[in-house]
Design a protein around this nucleic acid. Structure first.
Lengths: 414, 414
DNA sequence: CTATTTTTTTCGAGCCTCGAATTAAAGAGG
DNA sequence: CCTCTTTAATTCGAGGCTCGAAAAAAATAG
């Protein structure tokens, strides 16, 4: 709105368009790009020849492909894997993993470690991440790939400006400055993102039919998280990752939540809350720090078999989620909901109470339009989204400006 | 993101920049525009000379102004009032008003009418608006001003795509298609907006120090409404005006709300709810369709004087607002809150319970940063915001494309 | 070996912004 | 009254960018 437009902004924007089309479609000829982007063939030619010169794109001549049609054959263009690399780091409860990923999205190396996140000091947490990243950076140096961006996905609230982890259930420490430390150590720009937001990013890329402009990804796990896409864009708060669906208030002064407050949605719908209620414990009992997945699975099994405290616990959980969604819908309009995470495996127990609760709220007006979708396995989604997010940063910020070094990127091995 | 950029988009964008600067600052010289927008003097010159040629801007030579400084004096530019006109229509309970407004924001004529909105048919509602607009259009025809846009501000939920009033407390009818009917009648583009959103627009323009990038305008009146600005932009839902803060759920299966559901924030904090609670009526009693302002004022008076059901009613109201804001903060981060409307006059009674409730929610973390501001009179804000919104549309959509008619707008009288 | 078809590149026209130089319009001072 | 100084605004050429039309490239069909 308040941004001044110069002539080369046009080129920047159109380069992004081309890179975006190729990120979606893997391979496209110049004609294909012309059709998909709407740019004229001459412009596509100009832009792609620049990008090829800069070794960001490359022609992928397929000698096997027997040209079926008459006429000059199309030559496919694709993102050059060696143009850059990024590192995607996922930090969750007691687990740290990182991947070195090439520019076209292929995994180069993977690292994974178990660690006691709850017992670690602030410094130890950062050091653990830094060590794992260091190994990947070393590896990249050996293969000649230049790591241009590191993206963290962490459980909890992140600050998009200071790029820190503001608060997280995986650690007692607040405001952990991952970005600054890692940036200092490796001289590579770092972003810190919320894990559920990355789930949303991944869903959008995986199935752009279903998840395009407006949808809600709800993570049902030990805690409750959410990633929100509105009008095609990932929604974030004024400053933090926000979208803390799990900590919207469900019952004033209600059950004790892991965050220390009372009555949050999570205090009814998180694994620990279901467990607590199913075992008829005091709702003000301090939440268990971890409940094994099998435990929840067997509670769900019980709940399916017969009426009792287990079924009531899942009913309460569904009700909390439903009222929460209802309030959310009052604010942003109803949208398709994807339930992700192992908690989503009990969706059969949850769906009815969720729908009943939504029907009691403002969102209920459009009930018919509501669709629920289930993706039980969250970890790969987080990894995928995180990697994609980092690559998109590279697309937008690094490869859209023209004054990049022209060649020199061809230093790949072999 | 997916938009292709052409060369003349640059000019379009920069024209908007110039018009926007002049809308904010009333008068600016070309040098002033250069400083404020960052455009080079030559570009400012090119753009402004086009705009003057098209009679969108005009030079405002001030012969009185004794040039205090040495050197060639600056010549002030301003929006040409005769460049266009817009009509701002405000529809609320039992009241319809409309203003014909010139391009620089000055009021040309005003119309106002009392009507029984609750008792009117769908057709009568539209006809009433059409009649009032018709008078203003006639007036504009006599003075030669061309009306380029009509903007409605209505209480209730609006649909930004179909430009209808989806649901409103002022009428039993849903999905009232104001825009289509009015557009057909006058051949002028129409938009339908939510009144609280227009309050937010007006606040942003009035005091851009306080209300710039992130703030929340909450209307405390018979019902509860909200307008939300996030990262400088008015927030709207995926499709409707959304931001239905008043219909977020406060207490599951709680008090009966005007919308027919139970437990909404409004069912505790709306005027009718406070009245109902203060008089110790059943919380499931059908809400009164209107409660006089003096009635509320005297309840507030009572509540200030002594403990009793009145004070408890205001406590409950504040608590509902506080929990609602807390849940909102969980989603978007805390932001300054402006309370608008006659209900805000009891802010002294509400503030404490609001703060106490927020402290119990996720938003409480940043309590210190929370500032409340009070603007008791909502009507002028709605009018102002609505007019500004219409004018901004004209700026963006009509006067940013180059192929406008070059002159012919100079047909002003006298 | 030539004609046809399809893809890609080349080239000139027409935008746009910007910096430098130029012109315009005042006050200051003798 | 005339000239110098200062500030504002315009003009002009350079350098981008996109686009359409025409040309070149690279295959198949006959």
């Amino acid at each position: 709105m308040t941004a001044i437009a110069r002539s080369d902004d046009v080129r920047r924007q159109n380069r992004r368009l081309v890179l975006g089309a190729l990120r979606d479609h893997e391979q496209l000829s110049r004609t294909g790009l012309h059709r998909r982007t709407g740019l004229s063939p001459s412009t596509v030619s100009a832009i792609t020849s620049d990008l090829i010169m800069e070794a960001i794109l490359r022609e992928q001549r397929d000698p096997d492909m027997p040209a079926t049609r008459r006429g000059r054959p199309q030559v496919a263009l694709g993102l050059n894997p060696d143009a850059a690399a990024i590192i995607a780091v996922v930090l969750s409860l007691n687990s740290l993993s990182a991947s070195l990923i090439d520019y076209s999205g292929g995994i180069i190396v993977d690292r994974q470690a178990r660690l006691e996140t709850l017992g670690m000091t602030r410094r130890e947490l950062v050091a653990a991440a830094q060590a794992m990243i260091g190994e990947l950076v070393d590896h990249s140096a050996r293969t000649g790939a230049r790591v241009l961006r590191i993206a963290f996905a962490v459980q909890g609230i992140t600050d998009s400006v200071a790029r820190t982890m503001l608060w997280s259930p995986i650690s007692p420490h607040s405001d952990v400055a991952f970005a600054d430390a890692i940036e200092d150590a490796f001289g590579i720009p770092v972003t810190v993102e919320n894990d559920c937001n990355m789930i949303a990013v991944a869903l959008q890329a995986r199935d752009s039919e279903r998840y395009r402009d407006n949808f809600i990804a709800v993570l049902l796990s030990h805690g409750i998280g959410m990633g929100l896409v509105i009008k095609g864009d990932l929604f974030t708060g004024t400053r933090s990752s926000a979208g803390e669906f799990g900590h919207m208030n469900h019952v004033p002064d209600g059950a004790l939540c892991r965050c220390g407050r009372h009555g949050c949605v999570e205090a009814y719908a998180g694994s620990y809350a279901i467990w607590r209620a199913a075992l008829c414990h005091d709702p003000d009992e301090t939440p268990a720090s971890d409940v094994p997945e099998q435990e929840i699975a067997s509670l769900a099994h019980r709940a399916r078999e017969r009426d009792g405290p287990e079924r009531r616990a899942f009913d309460k959980a569904g009700e909390a989620i439903g009222f929460g969604l209802g309030s959310l819908f009052a604010l942003i309009d109803p949208a398709p909901v994807a339930f992700v995470g192992h908690g989503a495996q009990a969706i059969d127990l949850l769906e009815d109470p969720i729908r009943r609760a939504i029907a009691k709220t403002a969102g209920g007006q459009h009930d018919a339009a509501l669709t629920f979708l289930v993706e039980p396995n969250e970890a790969p989604l987080i990894r995928e989204g995180c990697a994609l997010r980092a690559l998109t940063y590279v697309d937008r910020e690094i490869f859209s400006g023209s004054p990049a070094q022209p060649s020199d990127a061809r230093q790949d091995v072999a």
